[in-house]
Design a protein around this nucleic acid. Structure first.
Length: 479
RNA sequence: GGCGAGGUCGCCAAGUGGUAAGGCCGGGCUCUGCAAAAGCCCUAUCGCGGGUUCGAUUCCCGCCCUCGCCUCCA
């Protein structure tokens, strides 16, 4: 498996430090509201990454944190009149529900920031002892950026001039720092924090955001691990600060590889509530789309490429052409499965564990290799369709069909696509609809075309579509 | 202003120093009572201007445009 590394700016081979298991950390969500589809682009691609690793034969150990104590969770929990725990538990559960729908494998560990405050305090103490941090008069503690020689390597800070306040967000909660670059490790208690404060050697307060990841990485992955991942926006300052904290403490390289995901664009621009282009999984489901369709759209572009999620058509109407296209593409995949499955004569879908043991990609080997080569999901999809087109199922022996089918499922599993059910597998139509369909078949057999067309219209009016097939007919709910 | 990413068919999106995968949409054909389904087929010279080269969309230079980040946003 090869992947682009933000630190070296090169595509590198991935080698586990311990020679056995690839151990990596992903910055998880801040649980103060529903995650949006941009967040899920990141999590879905990280999931494809993990699946590709595992299916290529390298076991993974995946840690992804939950940020459940920070300015926003504290502010919004107070506003809703709930305790921080009640509030973040609720949004954590919602996140899990969305992840399950999107077919994301659960991380092996999902540590919560608020449950690791002692670890964070210990780390602050160590940073102070080593001269990398200082307490201010009000009881906050800051990291002295000037004390860490390597600061800025990841984001190439040495080559840039930071324009103060260029992001438009002037921090209102920074107290007295020695330098504008210094960042908070511990924030002194404020009145508006309510009950959300913890004791520390520097007084009551709460931990800074950057520190939680450093502390949890250290706890669960040690001083050095294989890979660290997050959205591009985290390169600076979040990951830069994590490196400064962790490496100043341990004296070792924090992560061998940095994996960053480019942002999703919606209708050509950044998603924002004010622009009305802010979408959650829930909203898309309400609009009639499946999580699998969203997932397909999210993997349809390379992870280092901006992906434009088209929601509105040329007239500005919210028709989600991208999701509609994904629906068709998934249908084609599902139909291939139905045909090859029938030929192979094994009705059961291969399980993920079965696929982990499968090494033979058959006609789909090159598609899988696209994933191993810097996680090229769009190329993989292209090759899957090319392979499907080239395979003449009719000419295959059941044994060869089974082999091709396994190769197909191996790639589909790496992409994490849940195929829609087709034909006979679809939900049974109500008996009255079936009766109408039977009647239509009889009318057709009698060449009573007027009656058969009338029955088709009647079925259609009831929300079902009848399609003739070689064997007879098929009923599908109309979308 | 700095740093980074990007401009490829109507839309989405790969890729390559030798004349451009795939998906959606559209069109044609076969099949079909009609339709659907299925199958087959068709549609781009790669932002603009230079340069290097036998040859560039692919390398170099300049320009235009888009997007992201620039201290707590995936």
């Amino acid at each position: 498996m090869r992947l682009f590394d933000t630190m070296s700016r090169e595509v590198c081979d991935l080698q586990p430090r311990d020679g056995k298991t690839y151990r990596f950390y992903c910055c998880g969500p801040t649980v103060y509201g529903p995650a949006h589809i941009g967040n899920f682009r990141t999590f879905v691609l990280q999931d494809v990454f993990r699946r590709s690793l595992e299916l290529s034969g390298l076991p993974a150990f995946h840690v992804r944190n939950l940020t459940d104590v920070d300015d926003k969770t504290i502010r919004d929990s107070q506003a809703s009149g709930r305790s921080l725990k009640d509030f973040t538990d609720h949004w954590r559960d919602r996140f899990h529900t969305d992840c399950d729908k999107l077919n994301l494998l659960r991380p092996h560990l999902e540590p919560s920031a608020v449950e690791h405050i002692p670890h964070q305090i210990a780390m602050i103490r160590e940073l102070m002892e080593k001269g990398h941090a200082y307490a201010s008069a009000d009881g906050s503690v800051y990291y002295r950026v000037a004390s860490f020689e390597g600061y800025g390597r990841l984001s190439r800070l040495d080559q840039r001039e930071l324009r103060e306040g260029a992001s438009g967000a002037v921090a209102d909660d920074e107290y007295d720092k020695d330098s504008v670059s210094d960042f908070a490790l511990w924030k002194a208690r404020r009145d508006e924090d309510g009950a959300n404060w913890w004791d520390s050697p520097w007084g009551q307060g709460r931990p800074g955001w950057h520190l939680e990841c450093s502390a949890m990485c250290r706890e669960y992955l040690g001083d050095s691990f294989d890979l660290h991942s997050g959205g591009v926006d985290l390169v600076f300052p979040h990951h830069e600060n994590e490196i400064a904290q962790s490496e100043a403490c341990s004296g070792h390289v924090m992560a061998d590889h940095w994996f960053h995901l480019t942002h999703l664009l919606v209708d050509g621009g950044k998603m924002s509530k004010s622009a009305g282009n802010f979408y959650t999984l829930d909203q898309l489901e309400t609009a009639g789309f499946s999580p699998a369709e969203l997932r397909y759209v999210l993997i349809s572009a390379h992870y280092r490429q901006p992906l434009n999620f088209v929601a509105k058509d040329a007239d500005g109407k919210e028709t989600f052409p991208a999701l509609l296209g994904a629906r068709q593409a998934l249908q084609r995949l599902a139909k291939f499965e139905a045909v090859i499955g029938a030929k192979a004569g094994t009705p059961d879908m291969p399980t993920y564990d079965t696929l982990l043991a499968a090494k033979d990609g058959a006609s789909f080997q090159s598609a899988f290799e696209s994933l191993e080569n810097d996680l090229n999901t769009p190329e993989a999809l292209g090759r899957v369709f090319t392979a499907i087109k080239s395979i003449k199922v009719d000419t295959l022996s059941p044994k060869d069909a089974a082999r091709e089918r396994l190769g197909f499922h191996r790639v589909v599993a790496a992409l994490g696509l849940r195929l829609p059910v087709t034909g006979e597998q679809a939900a049974e139509a109500p008996s009255e609809i079936q009766a109408l369909a039977e009647a239509r078949r009889d009318a057709k057999a009698a060449k009573n075309w007027a009656e058969s067309d009338r029955l088709r219209n009647e079925i259609s009016a009831l929300g079902w579509e009848v399609k003739d097939t070689k064997e007879g007919y098929e009923l599908c709910p109309k979308n």
